Simulated assay, not measured.
Amino acid sequence: MSQLDTVLAAGRRAAEARMRDTVRLYSQGADSFDRTTGNTVPGVQTTLYAGKARVKAIAQSTGEEAEAGERELVLREYEVQLPWATSLPGGTRVLPGMRVEVTASPDARMVGLVLWVTGAAFSDQATAWRIRTEDRS
């Protein structure tokens, strides 16, 4: 093992030690309309990862205002860090539009927060797998 590999392994252990939140990364199928009941039926959710993570607000995020339908939204950016060695089933890649739900956190206010994936970074020299998300509430 090279000196770089030793340093990276230590950094990855340290990054995982800071992962005190629990999240669920999932994709959701398209909604459908039930003509019998007149209700929209949510698409099927497929869980790709469930486990420890670190969810943190991005400091320079200004909270961009946007409009969706007739509703005003404030988009706040978050970075979700998963263990570096995390792999998704069947070689699935993280794609924009997937979602991350915070299922447990030492900060109880974060539980239930659903974040929308905007991108993911890959690097063999990273200490964690970083996924960019936004809160669309």
Score class of each variant (00 low, 15 high):
Q45M: 03
G69I: 05
Q125E: 13
S137R: 13
R136V: 09
W116F: 12
L95M: 11
L88M: 08
S2G: 12
M19S: 07
W84P: 05
T36G: 08
V7W: 11
V114E: 02
T127K: 10
V55A: 07
S137D: 14
K52E: 11
S27A: 07
G11D: 08
D124G: 11
R18S: 14
A68P: 06
A85Y: 11
A59Y: 12
T37Q: 00
E101P: 04
V44D: 11
D107V: 07
P89Y: 04
E72K: 14
Q60L: 12
Q60P: 00
I58P: 05
I58F: 10
R109N: 12
E134Q: 13
V111M: 07
P96Y: 01
S27N: 00
T62E: 13
D107Y: 11
P89A: 07
A17C: 06
W84K: 12
G63R: 01
P83R: 06
T62Q: 15
L88G: 02
L4N: 14
A15Y: 08
Q81H: 09
A85F: 09
R18V: 08
L75T: 02
M19Y: 07
D21G: 00
R13N: 15
G51S: 06
V23S: 08
R71G: 01
R130T: 11
D34E: 01
L82D: 01
V41S: 06
V117R: 02
Q60D: 15
V111N: 02
E70L: 15
R136H: 06
L75P: 03
